[in-house]
Nucleic acid binder design. Sequence first.
RNA 1: GCUCCCUUCGUCUAAUGGUUAGGACGUCAGGUUUUCAACCUGAAAACAGGGGUUCAAUUCCCCUAGGGAGUACCA
Length: 474
Amino acid sequence: MSDKVVTRFAPSPTGYLHIGGARTALFNWLYAKAKGGKMLLRIEDTDQARSTEGAILAILDGLTWLGLDWEGEPVYQLARAVRHREMAEQLLAEGKAYRCYASVEELAGMREQARAKGRAPGYDGSWRDRDLAEAPAGIAPAIRFKAPNDGETVIEDQVQGRVVFANKDLDDLVILRSDGTPTYNLSVVVDDHDMGITHVIRGDDHLTNAARQTQIYKALGWQTPIFAHVPLIHGPDGAKLSKRHGALGVEAYRASGYLPAALRNYLARLGWSHGDDEIMSAEDMIRWFDLDAIGRSAARFDFTKLENLNGHYLRETPDAEIVDRLRALVPELPNGDELTAAIGPDGWRQLERALPGLKDRAKTLVELVDNAQYLFAKRPLTLDTQAERLLDQPARETLTALLPRLEGVEPWTKEVLDASVRAYAEEAGLKLGKLAQPLRAALTGKSTSPGIFDVLEVLGREESLARIADQTGQ
RNA sequence: GCUCCCUUCGUCUAAUGGUUAGGACGUCAGGUUUUCAACCUGAAAACAGGGGUUCAAUUCCCCUAGGGAGUACCA
C-alpha cells in the first residue's frame, strides 16, 4: 500500500457532462495533480434504463476538451455487478445483512407513518430479526444492510468539517435488489475500495450517502477514504442549476465559443480561492489547490464573469490557435454551412489577418465570427435599412458616396484610408463618430463592433496590407 | 415533516478578537482612442437579524429568519 493520492470522477452517463460535474472532475483532477497522485474515471452505468452510449462519449469528450485527463481505462460499474453481489452475500453470510420481504406498498406505508410521527422516514427494520419461516412464498427478497441502531456515524469531511449523524436516523438500506442487482451505495463502496481510492471528492448532495457508506465500509472491515463534499453550483437566481438556467453541459459552452482555459479558470474560482488571484493557469491551480480552501456555501453561476474571463483568454491566445479553434467550431454552428460557404477557402487567411482587431472586441469565438462578417460582406456594399435609420439626410448622402470607395480597387494604406474617410466626414460637416456606427451596420448588418478602422484596413485588399506591413517593419 | 449544510458589496470571494473590511466581475464617472472595443484612473456598493462571551466581535457560542441538499428495491 502506497500513500499516493488516488481520486476519481464517477459520473452517471444519463446526458452530457454537466457543468457541476465538470467542476467536480476539475477538483478531483487538481487535487490528484497537486499531490502527485492520479485521477481515475468510473462510469456509473448501473441504471440501464437511463444510461446511453452517447452520454458516455459526451462525458469523455467533455473531459478531454477541458484538458482533464484520467489514468488508465474508465471503469464501468455495470461490469462489476458480480463482485458487488459477492460482497452483499458475504455481508448476508456474516449476519451483517438480511433478507427483506416487504412489498412496495408496505414500504410506502412505513414512510407515511414515520412522517406522521415526525420521525426520520425509512424502513422500520421489521424483517431484521424475523424468522425466515415467516417469509411469504413466491416472493424474491431484497437484501438489506443491517445498519447500527445506536450511536453515531461521524464524517471527518475535508470541506464540511466534522459532520455527525445519529444512527437511529439512518435506516437499513437495500444493498441488493430482489432481482439480484446491487444498489448504488454498495457498488460505490466496493468500487472505491477495489480501485484504491484514497480521496472521494464529490457534490455535497452525497453527504448523507457518505454516512451510509461509512457504515458499509465498517461492516466490510475496510478503511474509509477521506471525504470532501463540495457545495453545488446554483443558477443566478439561487436555485439549483437546471435546464431553465440555460447551458448545462460543457459542450454547450464549447458550442457558444468559450475556451477551455477560461471555463477551467472560472469553475475553479467558483467555490475555491487562492487569496486575491483571479487569472490562473492550470499550472498555477495545481500549485495552489487544496481542499481546505474550498468554501462551504453554494455559489451562483455568473455568466457575465465567465464571459469576461473568456475575453481575457481570447486576447491571450495566439492567432493561429484561434483560427484552428474557429475552423473546428464553425461547422457546428447553427448557420455553419452558410458560414463555411461565405468564408470560402481564402477566407481563413483573411480572417487570421483581421484577428488582431477582432480579438479585442469579442468575448467568445462565436461573437468573434459574428464580428468578422464584414470580411465576407456581399459586394457592392449597400446601406441597409438598419444602417439608414441611424442617419440623417447629409450623413446618408455622405455614406452612400463613401461606400463604393470602400470597395476601391487601388491599394490603400491605413493612412490614406484614415485621411479619406476623415475628408468625407469633414466635407459633409459630420463627426467621424457619426458615420462610424451606420458604416459598421452597412458592412456587418449590426450597429456595434468591430472597430471601423479595422474594417477599412482589411477591406483595403492584400496589397495595402502588405504595404502597411512594410511600413511598420513587420 | 425529519436529518444535515450554508449566510461578507448585485455576483464570485479575501482577511481579522481591535482594519479606512481587501480583490475580481458587473454598474457609474473620467482618461486614452478622430468610432467601437481593449486599456488606465476613480466612485458607489457587504459583515442577514437578535441575544450572549469579551475591555473589544464581522470574527467565538446560542436563537431566529432566509437559502440549499438528502430523505427510493435512482445514481
